[in-house]
Amino acid sequence: MELRQLQYFVKVAKLQHVTKAAEELHVAQSAVSRQIHRLEEELGVRLFMQKGRNVQLTPVGQLFLRRAESLLTDLDRAVMEIHEFLDPEAGEIRLGFPHSLGYHIVPRVVSAFRKLHPHVKFRFRQGMYASLIRDVTEGEVDLAFISPHPEKNDLVTGEIILTEELFAILPDKHPLAQEVAIDLDQLKDESFVLFNPGYSLRSLVWEACLKAGFTPKIGFEGEETDTIRGLVAAGMGVSLLPEMALYQTSAMMPVIVKVRNPHVVRTIGLIRRNGYKLPTVVQMFHEFLLDFFQNEYTSR
Results as ranks from 00 to 15, higher is better:
Val79Thr: 08
Ile133Met: 15
Leu176Asn: 12
Thr267Phe: 06
Asn196Pro: 04
Met80Tyr: 00
Ala168Asn: 01
Ser239Asp: 04
Arg114Val: 09
Gly44Tyr: 03
Ala21Asn: 06
Ile218Cys: 14
Asp189Ser: 12
Ser299Cys: 07
His286Glu: 14
Tyr129Gln: 08
Ile256Cys: 02
Ser33Pro: 03
Val32Arg: 07
Arg266Thr: 13
Arg125Asp: 05
Leu25Gly: 03
Glu207Met: 11
Leu204Ala: 06
Phe9His: 03
Tyr103Leu: 10
Arg66His: 05
Met80Gln: 10
Phe288Met: 12
Pro175Asn: 05
His117Gln: 14
Pro107Val: 05
Arg38Lys: 12
Glu40Met: 00
Ala68Val: 09
Ile160Lys: 14
Val264Asp: 06
Gly198Val: 03
Ile161Arg: 09
Val32Lys: 07
Val282Met: 10
Gly213Ser: 13
Pro197Val: 04
Arg108Ile: 05
Pro171Leu: 09
His17Ser: 14
Ala90Gly: 03
Arg77Met: 07
Val281Thr: 15
Ala144Gln: 08
Ala130Ser: 13
Leu246Ile: 01
Arg46His: 10
His99Asp: 08
Met80Leu: 09
His99Gln: 06
Leu241Asn: 02
Phe285Lys: 12
Ser191Asp: 09
Leu65Arg: 00
Val32Ser: 08
Arg273Gln: 15
Arg4Gln: 11
Phe292Tyr: 15
Phe9Gly: 07
Glu287Pro: 07
Phe195Asp: 06
Gly44Phe: 03
Val109Gln: 13
Leu210Arg: 15
Arg77Val: 06
Phe214Thr: 13
Leu86Ser: 12
Pro59Thr: 05
Val12Thr: 04
Val180Asp: 15
Gln126Asp: 07
His174Phe: 04
Glu190Cys: 11
Asp76Ala: 10
Asn274His: 15
Ile146Lys: 09
Thr267Ile: 05
Leu57His: 05
Ile105Asp: 00
Ala234His: 04
Asp154Asn: 10
Val264Lys: 11
Phe85Met: 14
Met284Lys: 15
Ile160Trp: 01
Leu289Ala: 11
Met284Arg: 15
Ser200Val: 05
Leu3Gly: 05
Leu43Gly: 00
Asn261Val: 08
Gly198Tyr: 02
Pro118Val: 08
Ile146Ala: 09
Gly61Pro: 01
Gly127Ile: 05
Pro88Phe: 07
Thr280Phe: 09
Phe97Met: 13
Thr227Val: 05
Ser299Asp: 12
Met284Asn: 15
Tyr8Gly: 02
Leu231Arg: 03
Val193Leu: 06
Glu151Val: 14
Met236Thr: 00
Gln178His: 02
His149Met: 12
Leu210Thr: 14
Ile271Leu: 11
Val205Ile: 04
Gly158Ile: 07
Phe113Met: 10
Ile228Cys: 08
